[in-house]
Simulated scan of single mutants.
Amino acid sequence: MSSKRTLVAVLLATLWATSSLSPASAETAAKPPAPAPATQAQIDRNGLLILLRNALSALDQANKTGNYTVLRDQAAPGFAAANNPARLGEIFAYLRRDKVDLSGALVMEPQLTVMPEITQNGMLHFAGFFPSASSRLNFEMLFAPVDGQWRLFGLGANLGSAAPAAPVPPPAPAPAPGAKKDEKKPPKP
């Protein structure tokens, strides 16, 4: 499951719990509205690293123990209401199944691909990855303001390729019908 799909799954579950939509009516509803414009977040790098590493550490411990209670209880009330520990276990089962160790995020430097921004509904959003030699850990996070603190509202994480893949060259053009092949004769001794 991709990071975006995981984040969307967690966010949809949260939206169902905090709105009048039920999961069934949300599935049959028309396309979701276009994302609202965001503004740059005023958060320093250390604050961002604390949020990022705390969330990934909680997810890593939950995956290793199979207990998602602490991850759920640290999150924003809307996230907690929409996601019981069993549901979080289902959402992140692919990380457990693949035995993904997220603890490297505690010491590696993240590379941001989406700079911290405040969404129109007042949430902090950012995304990026932790590079490593063999693979990279991609992440996307959303935090809600709760009592003057940022609390986890959406989380996506997955492993991706460590290096960008080289483009595949197009196949060589086929000779035109009736065209003679350029036959090269072997050199004379």
Rank of each mutant, 00 (worst) to 15 (best):
D101C: 14
A81H: 07
F79S: 13
M141I: 11
Q40N: 00
R97L: 12
V107C: 04
P173V: 09
T39H: 07
A176C: 03
D101V: 04
T14L: 00
P173Y: 01
F79E: 05
V107S: 14
Q111G: 07
I43S: 02
D60W: 04
P23E: 08
Q149V: 06
P173M: 15
L49S: 02
S3C: 15
T14C: 00
A17S: 15
D73T: 09
G160I: 06
I50M: 08
D60K: 10
D147W: 01
W16M: 10
L155G: 02
W16I: 11
L106H: 10
R97I: 02
A93T: 00
P116I: 09
L152A: 05
A165C: 00
A30K: 10
L152Y: 12
P110A: 15
T14I: 01
P116Y: 15
Q149H: 14
E140C: 01
D44P: 09
S2H: 04
M141N: 01
G128K: 11
T18H: 00
S57F: 03
G66M: 08
L95R: 10
P32F: 06
Y68D: 06
S25I: 06
Q40F: 03
N67R: 06
A24C: 00
R136D: 02
K99R: 12
A176S: 06
I118R: 14
S22D: 09
M115D: 14
P175S: 00
G78F: 12
F143R: 07
R5M: 11
F129S: 13
V70Q: 11
A162D: 03
P77G: 05
N67G: 01
A55T: 05
M123Y: 14
E90T: 14
V114G: 02
P173T: 05
M1S: 14
S20A: 07
L102M: 13
D182A: 11
D98A: 15
R87E: 04
V8S: 09
E183M: 08
A38E: 13
L142G: 01
Q111D: 13
A13Y: 02
N121E: 13
V100Q: 08
P110V: 07
E90L: 05
N138F: 09
L56R: 10
A13G: 14
N54I: 00
A34D: 11
A174E: 13
P23A: 03
Q149E: 14
N67Q: 12
E27C: 08
S132E: 13
M115G: 00
A82K: 01
P110E: 09
L152K: 06
P170K: 05
M1N: 03
N63P: 04
A157R: 04
F79D: 10
G122P: 15
N63G: 10
G89V: 11
S57H: 09
V10W: 05
G156S: 05
L21P: 05
L51P: 01
K180S: 15
V8R: 10
K184S: 12
K180A: 15
E109F: 14
S19K: 03
L11G: 07
N121W: 09
P116A: 12
L106S: 15
R72I: 03
T65Q: 11
N138S: 09
A55D: 07
S2Q: 07
Q61T: 13
I118S: 05
A162I: 03
G178K: 07
P35F: 08
E183H: 07
A176D: 08
I91R: 07
Q120M: 12
